[in-house]
């Protein structure tokens, strides 16, 4: 786990250089009364266990079954998402991008991996990687194909680059054959990647992979 192993002195504890930096910063901020370790743990717990793509799945499923909500979501995403109880802590705006039979949206942050945390949790490693960030802009179809999503020439692909002030969420198309499914069951079809735009919502027969 730690890269630090420079000596045979294993009778003493070791902290890697990085761990030392983090501990130092945390203890200085604690001394100044700016952070407290328990509150930090609570934040981590929230992001690891409570906030995740499930929030976004519920937003999408609601939009699929409730045209009024969908309208509000497209007009003012932050307010509509807040109304379901999922609030962003960064005070940034959100914009929902609707996929249609002729338009497929995909989101990225080329600068620093901004991500709609409130609805998707924390981003997967590939989203943060340089190859994704750079290539999806230059060759979106090629990248989507690597994710197993082959789009016909008649479908326009739009790539949206997030900023510190604005994050995007894709509203995937509701899959065929889902008429009559409950909102809860529909939410199970909405994968994290379908809300980033690197895949479609799952087929109801196949289920979420």
């Amino acid at each position: 786990m730690s890269p630090h192993s420079d000596s045979g002195h294993d009778d003493h504890s070791h902290l890697s250089d990085t761990e030392l930096r983090v501990r130092s910063l945390e203890s200085l901020l604690t001394d100044k009364g700016l952070v407290n370790p328990e509150a930090l743990d609570a934040i981590v717990d929230r992001y690891e266990n409570k906030i995740g793509p499930r929030n976004g799945s519920r937003v999408v499923a609601r939009a699929w079954v409730d045209p009024d909500f969908k309208q509000r979501l497209l007009e003012n995403a932050s307010a509509a998402i807040d109304s379901l109880g999922y609030t962003s802590t960064q005070g940034v705006d959100m914009l929902v991008l609707e996929n249609t039979p002729t338009v497929h949206n995909v989101t990225v942050c080329t600068l620093c991996s901004c991500y709609p945390w409130a609805v998707l949790g924390l981003p997967p490693a590939w989203y943060k990687s340089f190859p994704f960030r750079s290539r999806v802009v230059k060759d979106p179809r090629g990248v989507l194909q690597e994710f197993g999503l082959k789009l016909g020439a008649g479908i326009e692909v739009r790539v949206w680059d997030s900023t510190a002030e604005l994050r995007y969420i894709v509203l995937p198309e509701r899959p065929a054959g889902t008429e009559g499914m409950s909102e809860e069951a529909l939410a199970d079809l909405v994968t994290r990647n379908s809300m980033i735009g690197t895949e479609k919502a799952a087929n109801p027969k196949a289920g979420k992979s």
Binding site: E26, L29, V35, A39, L40, I43
Partner: peptide, 9 residues
């Protein structure tokens, strides 16, 4: 996680 949480705080 600690670095992330400090930044948010």
């Amino acid at each position: 996680a600690q670095a992330f949480a400090m930044t948010l705080t």
